[in-house]
Design a protein around this nucleic acid. Structure first.
Lengths: 119, 119
DNA sequence: CAGAATCCCTTTAGATACTG
DNA sequence: CAGTATCTAAAGGGATTCTG
């Protein structure tokens, strides 16, 4: 087996850049976040992300699927029903997304505190 | 004090979206990553991010500064010297960036493994 | 060294309408 | 319900040039 690229000096193979290849894009990490707890349907996701258009949601879901992060199950029913869920590979992103969620919570509370004092 | 927005149902105040407000952008989290260990100069950062143009680096640094994540120290010398570093607020992002770096390392090794098998 | 300014082409993403 | 297709305004971002 080859020993190559074992030293990540960030000219080649910066780990953060690698992660961004998968989760960058304004909505990808948000989608993963919503899939963390449970499977979601298309419209369900959209209601939780009102600022993401149907078109954008569709595009981002496709990319996440192509990268093996999520999977889609289609039920041959009328009206149609689909369910999106994380793959096992996608599950490995959980610590990253949870770290983001945790920081965001802190930030939201900080903002609330600032807002209160300004008021 | 007001009790508002305490329930984050992700229609308003999704914590991941809040985090993205600060670190989204293709280069911001990479910049923070490089500032994690030590202060950096403009050209030093650029050498570590060859795919980020000088223009882009400048823009992203400005935004990070405006958001209070990093600070800039200018030394009145010739040739000019500047140093960028994280603020204490920026330091709070450390767990997020480290989680990303950690996942990226795993991903890079996985890719290496895949590449070896394909070869 | 550390940028700012300008030009200009490319990509993004919203709005709207349509489909199985 | 779960999308796709098309059009278009706006934003993004590279290349180049200029400055203190």
């Amino acid at each position: 087996m080859g020993i190559k690229r074992h030293i990540y000096n960030c000219q080649a193979g910066c780990p953060v850049e690698s992660t961004l290849q998968i989760i960058s894009g304004k909505w990808k990490s948000v989608i993963i976040y919503h899939l963390l707890e449970s499977t979601q349907r298309f419209n369900g996701l959209q209601k939780q992300m009102p600022d993401c258009s149907r078109r954008m949601l569709s595009l981002q879901l496709h990319e996440l699927q192509a990268d093996g992060v999520i999977q889609k199950k289609v039920y041959p029913e009328v009206p149609p029903k689909t369910e999106y869920s994380l793959t096992s590979f996608g599950e490995t992103l959980k610590p990253v997304i949870l770290a983001m969620a945790s920081w965001g919570d802190m930030y939201n509370h900080r903002q609330e505190y600032v807002d209160d004092n300004v008021k």
